[in-house]
Computed example of a mutant assay.
Amino acid sequence: MTSPPDPQTTSESLLRPVRLGNAFEDTVARLLQTIRLGVLAPGESLPPERELAARLGVSRDTVREAIKSLAEAGYLVSRRGRYGGTFLAEQIPRLAPDTADLTRADLDDALLLREILEVGAARAAAGRALSEAERAHLRARLADVRGAAPQDYRRLDSRLHLAIAEAAGSVSLVPLVAENRMRVNALLDQIPLLPRNIAHSDEQHEAIVAAILAGDACAAADAMCAHLAGSAALLHGFLD
């Protein structure tokens, strides 16, 4: 009979170095993996911040932000004092009913289609000679999402991504992006809005739009790909 895996070995395997382009999002996803797969028992402590930072290859500030975000979402509890530290909550949040029957294949399909459509849209938009009206429209949608209140963020984020699809110049592309965006938003609505992720997304949005306006198709595609990877990491972390 095969013996169960050593929890320490499993933990070390999951808490491996992350991609630095989305360090915060990947750190959250790695921590969620250890929680949702049962590597940590309720009430058990996480390794110290210094150790987590070394294992994940990120700064202690990134680890601290990830822990703070997961504490606010109800997954972790931080305690001070002699026996302080960060502990797994006794009861972690349950998945919303809409995601109870969600499969990994469903999630992968929505995210793969998003990558195909939206990376291509950014590349195509950067390859076009945009009119002043189109350029102004992109800038306006970018400004809207940067100043969005939390309750408006998903809607204004969607408007920016649809504006990029419109700038690609294919009338057939926009409804495809819109339909897939509805699928992705239904998934995003099941996970918490993390302020650090929103700030990072704003930076990535600016890089995408700047590359499109500069006519740099490769940079626009790369920036969009990195942006989508961050969202994908959080979705897999919370919903897998």
Rank of each mutant, 00 (worst) to 15 (best):
R146L: 10
V77P: 00
D108Y: 10
L95T: 02
D101P: 01
G85Q: 04
T103L: 02
L117S: 12
D106E: 11
R114T: 08
L117T: 03
A133W: 02
A89M: 03
D152W: 03
L112E: 14
S158A: 11
Q91I: 10
R79G: 02
E90C: 05
R139E: 14
I92C: 02
I116G: 05
D98K: 13
A143T: 10
V119Q: 08
A110L: 01
A148F: 02
L88P: 06
V145G: 06
R159G: 02
L111S: 01
V119K: 06
L95V: 09
L156F: 08
A105M: 09
T103M: 05
R80H: 04
R154W: 07
E134H: 07
R159S: 07
E132K: 06
R82N: 05
F87E: 04
L88N: 12
A122N: 13
H137L: 08
E132T: 13
G147M: 03
A89T: 09
L88F: 05
A96Y: 03
R82G: 06
A96S: 11
G127V: 02
S131W: 09
E115I: 03
L117C: 03
L130S: 09
A133V: 15
D144E: 15
R128D: 14
Y83Q: 04
A148L: 05
P93I: 01
G147W: 01
Q91V: 15
L113Q: 14
I92N: 00
R94W: 06
L156A: 00
R146W: 05
A133I: 15
G81S: 09
A110E: 12
L112A: 09
Q151R: 11
S158W: 01
